[in-house]
Design a protein around this nucleic acid. Sequence first.
DNA 1: TTGTCACGCAAGCCTGCGCTTGCCTATGGT
DNA 2: ACCATAGGCAAGCGCAGGCTTGCGTGACAA
Lengths: 99, 99
Amino acid sequence: MGDVFRALADPTRRAILDELQERSGQTLFELINRLVTRHGLSSTRQAVSQHLGVLEEAGLVRSRREGRYKFHDLDTAPLRAITDRWRIDPQEEDPCGSP
Amino acid sequence: MGDVFRALADPTRRAILDELQERSGQTLFELINRLVTRHGLSSTRQAVSQHLGVLEEAGLVRSRREGRYKFHDLDTAPLRAITDRWRIDPQEEDPCGSP
DNA sequence: TTGTCACGCAAGCCTGCGCTTGCCTATGGT
DNA sequence: ACCATAGGCAAGCGCAGGCTTGCGTGACAA
């Protein structure tokens, strides 16, 4: 499996994750359009395609083929590797509900 | 401030964070030794020094000067930016204590 | 079948990044 | 004063990574 950290290193890839979080199951061309209109990024189809490849190898994106379309979904599970490695207190919140 | 994600992209820098988590307040030479003995990495002084610079710019490492020594401490605060950005459920654990 | 659409593959280019090399500053010991 | 230690600065090298270019493939519509 690919490197999760290296996958997150690129700003365009992070924007892709943002997009997939906001709207799950986007195709390649959908992503390109939304990257342009909402993030001010102008990336080629190949560029975004390669980014999706990296993200998929890192396990951050899962894809499903349907006909000639390929839909992409976000998977935040690999991000646990980061929080687990350097133990981050899971929010100072009081999940038990106070008196 | 520097890029937290790019700072995490390098495996040697991640090992440095591991070391600083295990033993806080290490100097440059201490880190070099422990990287060799415990992580099998053989990095030059300059390399580690530059890595520390990147980590410091990213806010992941804080340093304090005392005499001719410079001690380094881990700061996991910037990692919150990651967990907050793609909302990770804070562990499936039951923090309230069961039965 | 022909054409279009959504996507994949692969080679080349070019910038950025990590590492080395060499020299410098400053603190502390003797 | 002298030297060793701990660390800093900056230029150069080499390679990986991101982008482009060009072509190829399978799915659907006419």
